[in-house]
Design a protein around this nucleic acid. Structure first.
Length: 104
DNA sequence: CCACTGACATGAG
DNA sequence: GCTCATGCCAGTG
């Protein structure tokens, strides 16, 4: 697959997020090659071309807060998705200490 | 090309 | 610990 734009890299990185783990927008932005472009990452997620190829529900804010999600019931569905994948939760926030995606 | 918007991140109160 | 304000980047009109 040939990469053409920043968003393409974002989709590529997001699709690499393993099941049961979550990544922050800032982390994805950095892996995409543009540190600080966390906002741009969010735009790509909302523009999300394929929810089954790009697990945007595994992308959370820097403090583990669930934001956005344009499918189902939004945040509610997003949380259910993560819980279903055994992601550790702390009330309304993800436990990044154990469920944060380590790119290694 | 210029201006506005947005699923963010960080700092200060 | 929570809320308000500022700065960041990319996309769209």
């Amino acid at each position: 697959m040939k990469i053409s734009s920043f968003k393409e890299r974002v989709y590529a990185v997001a699709s690499k997020i393993p099941r049961g783990k979550v990544a922050t927008y800032g982390q994805i932005a950095r892996l995409a090659g543009s540190s600080g472009a966390a906002r741009a990452v969010g735009l790509c997620m909302k523009n999300n071309p394929d929810t089954k190829k790009v697990p945007c529900h595994r992308v959370v804010a820097s403090d583990g807060s669930l934001t956005g999600y344009a499918y189902g019931k939004g945040i509610v569905t997003k949380r259910e998705m993560l819980v279903r994948e055994k992601v550790k939760f702390s009330q309304d926030r993800v436990d990044l200490g154990s469920s944060l995606w380590k790119t290694g």
